[in-house]
């Protein structure tokens, strides 16, 4: 664990020396701020409309889907390209510690980012009488954080397979979109067993139906945590794979 901590700290520092993290933060605040302002301004003219914290949850989820691949594309692909993986894995570092360290690093960035967006619910608290439901906010943020955890674990895993950041980005995004769209297909389909499975696989569905509405859905929590564990495990397997690689 100590070693994973050392790696996470290094990863965290590295994010702030490259433009990607700042760019993602900028996009987050640009898009969320715009939507937030729009909704609040609209509420001034529409009688009876009370904006709730959910106005930012949907857009924040979309932003996560597109920005996490940009954050994780470097994490292991660069170690592959620079050959520094050889340095790490001949030091007393286990494969899972490398993956965990990388994931903790990106989660640090994402947690900070999500925490910073609390500025929107906080301002709503002052704008709306009699204030907002903080339970709703907590559930929404828990959902967002769990989705971020799952997606970034998958992103780190995918980056282990590539030497090129661009390839890692494209494939990670494809995986995310597939998981996202799977829910839509389930809705459109005729139902049945397969549809139920697909609905469970769709992280966006868990989020939109429960967390974003202020409900902590146990099935959703379990699913997102399993997806996180799966990502970390897959990443570890991919790293261990280099030992037997045949080139």
């Amino acid at each position: 664990m100590y070693v994973a901590g050392v790696l996470a700290l290094r990863e965290w520092k590295r994010y702030w020396t490259t433009p990607v993290a700042y760019l993602v933060a900028f996009l987050f605040f640009l898009v969320l701020g715009w939507i937030f302002y729009g909704t609040v301004a609209q509420a001034l003219f529409v009688p009876g409309m009370v904006p709730g914290p959910e106005v930012i949850f949907g857009p924040a989820l979309t932003l996560l889907v597109f920005s996490i691949p940009a954050l994780t594309m470097r994490s292991l692909s660069e170690e592959n390209r620079w050959g520094t993986l050889e340095l790490l894995l001949t030091a007393p570092v286990r494969e899972w510690e490398v993956v965990l360290g990388k994931w903790l690093g990106v989660m640090g960035v994402l947690t900070l980012l999500l925490a910073a967006t609390l500025v929107y619910p906080l301002s709503l608290e002052y704008l709306v009488e009699p204030g907002i439901d903080w339970g709703h906010v907590a559930a929404g943020y828990l959902g967002l954080w769990l989705v971020a955890a799952a997606l970034s674990a998958l992103g780190v895993a995918v980056s282990a397979l590539f030497r090129s950041q661009i390839a890692a980005f494209v494939v990670t995004l494809a995986v995310f979109l597939a998981l996202w769209l799977v829910g839509m297909f389930a809705e459109a389909g005729s139902g049945g067993q397969a549809a139920v499975v697909f609905q469970h696989l769709a992280f966006a569905r868990h989020f939109a139906l429960h967390f974003a509405r202020g409900v902590v859905d146990l099935a959703g929590v379990v699913y997102l945590l399993s997806l996180t564990a799966f990502g970390l495990f897959a990443g570890t397997l991919f790293l261990e794979g280099h030992k037997w690689r045949a080139d």
């Binding site: 050392v6 790696l7 620079w82 993986l85 050889e86 790490l88 030091a91 007393p92």
Partner: peptide, 25 residues
């Protein structure tokens, strides 16, 4: 171990790199 092509973290500073490797070890 000194690897063949001396893979190093090009974005780190010399002392920071050694501190990093030292902490790992």
């Amino acid at each position: 171990y000194l690897p063949e092509r001396v893979a190093l973290y090009d974005d780190m500073r010399v002392r920071d790199f050694l501190m990093f490797m030292g902490r790992l070890r």
